[in-house]
Amino acid sequence: MNLTFYNDRATWLHRLDPRTKIGGVLLIFVVCLCFNHPLFIAGILASVLAIFTAAKSLKVLWKLRFLLVLLFVFSVVLWPFFIKGKTILLEWHGLEVSRESLLYGLAMGLRLTTFVSAGLLLLATTKNEEITNGLIRLGIPYPVAFALATAIRLAPTFADAGATIVQAQVSRGLDLDSKNIFGRFKRFAPLSIPIFISAMRYTNFLAMALESKGFRPDAPRTSYYEPQTTGRDWLVLGSLTLILAACLYMRVALHWGIIISGRL
């Protein structure tokens, strides 16, 4: 299983300053919070998908389709039970589902999907080193930025090791599909312990290799990749800010895009 998200293409999105992309993703997050009507959020999601297409990176989303669908379905199924609405559709032993809560659940599912997609958009178009660089230039302390970028970098490696470990234990007869709850506890150790140990070993080696190459988190270093801020970056940030302002106006002044008022 390959969990590397970066998709090496030469699109204008790839060339944006990482700071613009980090800022842009945050703006999209806030825009998502402006509405809780599913149609409005679906519109935002559609725009994010359009940007994905422009970045020629839809395949990155496709890689994570199961996770995205899972998040969406969970939200849609669970939210309605925790929200009260006016138009009751179903009532059963004190649990009730209303038209509003259903729509709200749908909106939350879409919102979660949009969040994850926007985050993936950043990862798909920005190299790890660029993210580190962007975070540092945004004032994040180097060790924090480096740790964050390393965590993103190591995820696919550990996923790989995890897949091998699953195969090794399945070869010994471990049944991952068993429905027995005790069985489930029993199969926790055979998978988690080797994964934990290989992760420890790996990070230890990595730390040794970094130090041996003269790396220290607190020392100054130059950067091979120096992002350039161009007019395009300002254009992107400016447009997103305008969009956010427009959305806030719609929500606050016009009361658009609201299923349940008083909630994000």
Binding site: D8, K127, L206, K213, R221, Y224
Partner: peptide, 30 residues
């Protein structure tokens, strides 16, 4: 030093940046 576990030593996005890592630590200009 090139350590025994070469997999664990490579962590950059591409070949070029991997080569650059040590040089960045030496503060070489681009």
């Amino acid at each position: 030093i090139v350590l025994q576990d070469f997999e664990a030593q490579l962590f950059s996005t591409n070949v070029e940046l991997e080569m650059a890592f040590g040089l960045e630590n030496q503060c070489l200009p681009k």
